[in-house]
């Protein structure tokens, strides 16, 4: 393994850690709103780090650009979907958890 390989491996592992955090939050957080926070944010950054690591490994600007495009698409979809779910949950009177 060379220097860039180590950097890519580090990025991939960090991405995996954020996915784990997202899943933990999804399982442990107390209501649908806080779970949305955990899931969308941690997973988006996790995917971003994995995309960065893979871009380094691909050795091609074209593939790197395509990976970033896919990431942006997931971001856009995630933002719209989490807004829709949060808004729908409020409309249907799903209560928020308070400390």
């Amino acid at each position: 393994m060379t220097g860039p390989d180590y950097l890519a491996a580090l990025l991939l592992l960090a991405g995996a850690l954020f996915f784990l955090a997202g899943t933990l939050g999804l399982l442990r957080f107390p209501d649908v709103y806080t779970r949305l926070h955990a899931l969308t944010k941690a997973d988006n950054v996790g995917l971003g780090l994995i995309v960065l690591g893979l871009s380094l490994q691909s050795g091609s600007w074209l593939v790197a650009g395509k990976l970033i495009l896919i990431w942006l698409l997931v971001l856009l979809a995630g933002a719209s979907v989490s807004h829709l779910i949060a808004r729908g949950a409020r409309l249907r009177g799903i209560p928020e958890w308070r400390r």
């Binding site: 991405g15 899931l39 997973d43 249907r92």
Partner: peptide, 20 residues
Amino acid sequence: ADRMLAAQLFGTTAVAILLV
């Protein structure tokens, strides 16, 4: 709403798996 979070989960995780 909690069940619908599956869509989010699959959206990001499956994309990550496929890219890897």
